[in-house]
């Protein structure tokens, strides 16, 4: 038991040191990298490791006779969660969201310290001491609070009331509801029934099962499936169309959506809303191929108002590409990210 707890304590100390190091820039902030798409799981498991570490620490402190009072345990844990959210997570979480997490974790800590009568007494004892006790230390502390509290609360309300120039928050719908049909280059496409004419098997029939077998493999790197190289001279049908789509992508789209389709192209840094990240499971992986066709053909200017058509720099690709080229680019995007288009049923 003790050995186990020592390991836990060690993990806790190491984790804390690393976090503190990252905050002060001693440890490079990318030492343990948050990988896109896996971030929620990573954060959860990191927090779990920290909790295990703290359990170990508290156990060790106990057995060495230096037990941390319940009150301070609660306060420290709550401030740890806040520190973690503020400094570990990137891109940064806005204050309002952190405040929400703050309240939730406060409630959780409160429930923990008030789980039974004895714990609750232990927890509130230090608070009562400051209010009532007549020892010199507590008297000094009481006076300190008397002076500091008004200053802090006054100062805080001054800072909140002072006019600031934070950018206004505007909420944009990233995937607005599509129309029933869309007209591109004089032809009307019904989104529910249209199919990508290049998603075909070797007989030339629409065959998603066939193309699904030839997309890149999921997992780190997302590499092409063995023996499915679109650049092979003998590649035909689906794989040949993938290559043609890739050529169009790298002549038109990568400037914003990036060489790895992760939305980090050459010009992406300048734009807001930022270009879509196709490798994120929340974009094309969740959408039907015809939805993408509509979005690509009509671009930012063709968005409904909730999508902020005035701000998006996504070109209406019908101005630059033929319908066939658009379908091929979509084919390439699914191939390169290793996702299946969602089907309507």
């Amino acid at each position: 038991m003790k050995a186990l707890m020592s390991v836990g304590a060690l993990i806790g100390v190491l984790g804390l040191l690393m976090l503190i190091g990252m905050i002060f820039g001693v440890v490079p902030s990318n030492t343990v990298r948050l990988v896109e798409g896996y971030m929620p799981m990573q954060v959860l498991s990191e927090l779990a490791v920290f909790v295990a570490g703290f359990t170990g620490l508290s156990y060790l402190a106990n057995s060495m006779g230096m037990a941390i009072p319940r009150f301070w345990q609660g306060v420290l844990f709550w401030s740890f969660v806040q520190t973690y959210l503020k400094f570990r997570i990137y891109p940064p979480i806005p204050f309002s969201v952190r405040a929400m997490y703050g309240v939730v974790s406060f409630v959780a800590v409160f429930m923990w310290v008030s789980a039974n009568e004895e714990d609750w007494k232990k927890f509130r004892q230090p608070i009562l001491n400051v209010l009532d006790a007549n020892t010199g230390f507590h008297k000094a502390l009481r006076t300190l609070y008397l002076i500091l509290l008004p200053i802090l609360i006054g100062g805080f309300s001054f800072l909140t009331m002072k006019p600031s120039v934070d950018e206004p928050i505007e909420l944009r719908t990233v995937h607005p509801a599509p129309p029933a049909s869309t007209k591109v280059h004089g032809k009307t496409y019904t989104l529910q029934t249209s199919q990508n004419p290049y998603r075909v098997n070797l007989e030339g029939k629409y065959d998603q099962a066939y193309s699904n077998k030839l997309i890149v493999e999921q997992g780190m790197g997302r590499l092409m499936a063995p023996n499915a190289n679109p650049w092979d001279d003998k590649a035909e049908g689906y794989l040949k169309y993938v290559r043609e789509g890739g050529e169009i992508f790298f002549q038109n789209c990568h400037f914003c959506h990036g060489d790895n389709l992760n939305g980090r192209g050459l010009h992406a840094f300048a734009f807001n809303p930022i270009p879509a990240n196709f490798t994120d499971p929340g974009t094309i992986a969740q959408l039907q191929e015809t939805f993408i066709f509509w979005r690509v053909a009509k671009g930012g200017i063709g968005l409904p108002n909730e999508g902020f058509p005035w701000a998006s720099v996504m070109p209406p690709w019908e101005q630059h590409l033929t319908t066939d080229e658009i379908w091929k680019v979509i084919l390439f995007e699914y191939w390169h990210t290793g996702y299946y288009p969602r089907t309507w049923d």
């Binding site: 609070y145 008397l146 008004p150 609360i153 006054g154 309300s157 001054f158 002072k162 006019p163």
Partner: peptide, 17 residues
Amino acid sequence: EVYIYPAVIAVGVVFLE
């Protein structure tokens, strides 16, 4: 007001204490 209200709030806190 930005200077006045916080001062009022601080005085209020003193009374509360």
